[in-house]
Design a binder for these strands. Structure first.
Lengths: 152, 152
DNA sequence: TATTGTTATACTCTATAACTATA
DNA sequence: TATAGTTATAGAGTATAACAATA
């Protein structure tokens, strides 16, 4: 006989995973229509309306590891959307920024993506948003504590 | 000047993504210690304590598309954890099931994984669980409606 | 004709670690 | 020594479509 696993947190995991998968599926379908992969869109969206940033900053914001980021940026450079510029202050560092073409694409697709995503929240009001954020934040804090306790 | 994007749902997206990423990072770190990739663990966990199921069912439950699933199962078969058996009723279909080795591994690592995950919920009580589930379910329903409206 | 699963293609991402060049 | 980023490896997952066997 299998042990009954009546863990009260299992429904939370199920719901979190399902909700996130629904969100991703809805978002990614639109991103792919735009001719980008999700990580490429992530980078583009992070660089939009900024003067650019180093690989390190970009890596921290997108949670893409530096090795992977090199490849993602390579493909965006190939598409002419992103540029790499040597930095004068610290010559180890590289400034990653949108090209004019990249900024133009961003200006076009980012609002379109927002409009697409707006539909996913059409059934909810601002009070719902507040409650959802509050509950998710509580959960995230709890996970964060566990991660700290696992490290040291 | 960039258009100000004061979309009230953006904080929800940010919080959902961050919370999910924290959850995944915490869960995957443990799964990889067990020598499995996340999709492989997903398949193993789905097959555990079942008599097995077809590729189609497995694909539906794990949300791994059938083409990808073939490769994931190949690697689990190579590890001796999963078997493929021809079905008599419908000879197009294949029964995917845990081998004895696979079931033994499942019996060993699934409780260990639950114990690991329990830590991530240590700061919360059953009322928190209910509230989080309720809010996530509301959000998921709204996303689901948008997906339906996009299709037809 | 429709369905189940495999194969084929071509990428894209991932983890990891070694390496280069600065600092 | 430490840091920023690239390169090198070796997988593994992804989307997509064509395909074989069966229903």
């Amino acid at each position: 006989m299998p042990t009954a696993t009546r863990e009260p947190f299992l429904p939370v995991i199920r719901e979190l995973v399902r909700t996130y998968q629904a969100f991703e599926s809805f978002s990614n379908a639109h991103v792919r229509e735009l001719g980008l992969t999700p990580p490429q869109f992530d980078v583009l969206a992070t660089l939009g309306n900024t003067p650019g940033m180093s690989c390190k900053e970009l890596s921290e914001q997108t949670l893409i590891t530096k090795g992977t980021l090199t490849g993602v940026i390579d493909r965006l450079v190939d598409k002419g959307l992103v540029s790499r510029t040597a930095q004068e202050e610290d010559r180890r560092s590289v400034l990653i920024a949108l090209t004019d073409t990249g900024q133009a694409l961003f200006d076009q697709i980012f609002p379109a993506h927002l409009a697409h995503m707006r539909q996913a929240f059409a059934g909810l009001d601002n009070d719902d948003f507040s409650r959802i954020c509050a509950e998710l934040a509580k959960l995230r804090r709890s996970i964060g504590l566990a991660m700290e306790n696992c490290k040291p």
